[in-house]
């Protein structure tokens, strides 16, 4: 598969994964809902295409795209979202904590801005080990207002660590616009710490890949951290609860305009129609398999509800005071 075909396939996979997942939310098979990544696929696809298997990423509440693009198995990922013991996290994490350490995926994260420092620590460990691995932290425009992220920029720059900060500016933190929440410019925040920062079209996977390659090369060569602001539009809800609740913060015209530039078409138009159709068909089959696998998979046994609570296997008392027994 060519690089361009690979980018398109990743995006198509994310798109169809999200669409099928939304169906499963509506069907009650995914409990708690999801934060759909639809519209932002080119960012995860472009950045992760610049990475190796052993590079590390940290992700967000809107994490499915990153996790899939970095190479997690979509079949086991969907099983995770449906809370099955065959899931990536054995049904313990769900949408907001999906992780696959074998692929360098240190997890989606439920707390905005929390992944940046974690990625930076992982980058430091890589340097100490003598490896040229890099770490990437994805976060949203809302996260740039978290103090911990700004503290992290300082550490990363001060210690010249191979970390790439990717800010996905989709214009909103839930209902709050960037204009309402960010003083100055987003890239200027990184630049203030001496971190090279660029703004790219986050609907164009090839443009994202190019920017990511440059940043990753700088990191591998000992040049320290980089920052990419990738602008895109979130096509769907902040979270699927919006499908039921009447929350109005974007006009229909705005949403229609935002959706009119579809990253799958921006890059898909670079492939010939036959190739594109072939990829679409392959993804369709894969997703059908993923849905079937998820729904056929066993549900976890409640007796193991606190398995893995401690890496050492430590067991505390359960909720009725008995030591070292099943939870209930």
């Amino acid at each position: 598969m060519t690089v361009d075909e690979g980018l398109y396939r990743t995006m198509r996979l994310i798109r169809r994964f999200e669409e099928r997942a939304i169906e499963l939310v509506h069907a009650g098979e995914i409990v708690g809902g999801i934060h759909p990544y639809i519209g932002q696929e080119a960012i995860a696809a472009g950045v992760c295409a610049a990475l190796r298997d052993d590079d590390v990423i940290t992700s967000t509440h809107r994490g499915h795209g990153h996790v899939l693009a970095k190479g997690a198995d979509p079949v086991r990922m969907l099983a995770e979202l449906t809370g099955r013991s065959t899931g990536l996290n054995q049904g313990r994490g769900g949408s907001m904590h999906a992780a696959d350490f074998g692929k360098g995926i240190y997890g989606a994260n439920g707390i905005v801005g929390a992944g940046g420092a974690i990625a930076t620590g992982a980058a430091w460990a890589a340097v100490r080990e003598g490896s040229d691995r890099v770490a990437v932290s994805f976060f949203g425009d809302g996260a740039v207002n978290q103090g911990v992220l700004l503290e992290t920029f300082n550490l990363a720059a001060l210690w010249r660590l191979p970390v790439l900060f990717v800010c996905e500016n989709n214009g909103y933190a839930t209902t709050l616009t960037v204009a309402q929440s960010v003083a100055g410019s987003i890239t200027a925040r990184a630049e203030a710490f001496g971190i090279p920062a660029v703004s790219v079209d986050g609907a164009d996977a090839a443009a994202v890949l190019e920017a990511a390659r440059e940043a990753v090369e700088r990191g591998r060569a000992g040049g320290g951290p980089s920052f990419i602001e990738a602008t895109a539009y979130r096509f769907d809800a902040h979270h699927t609860w919006e499908h039921k609740a009447r929350v109005r913060y974007r006009s229909d015209e705005e949403v229609a305009a935002g959706r009119s530039r579809d990253p799958l078409d921006v890059h898909g138009s670079r492939l010939d129609d036959g190739t594109r159709a072939g990829i679409d068909a392959e993804v369709e089959t894969l997703m059908a398999e993923a849905v079937a696998f998820a729904l056929d998979s066993p549900r976890p046994d409640p007796a193991g509800a606190l398995d893995h609570l401690y890496a050492t296997g430590l067991r505390g008392r359960n909720g009725i005071g008995l030591l070292d027994t099943a939870v209930r």
């Binding site: 809370g83 049904g91 313990r92 904590h97 606190l306 505390g316 359960n318 939870v327």
Partner: peptide, 12 residues
């Protein structure tokens, strides 16, 4: 339970 972290799957 002691130190509980709520697991995702409904039954857990």
């Amino acid at each position: 339970p002691d130190g509980a972290v709520l697991p995702f799957a409904s039954e857990l």
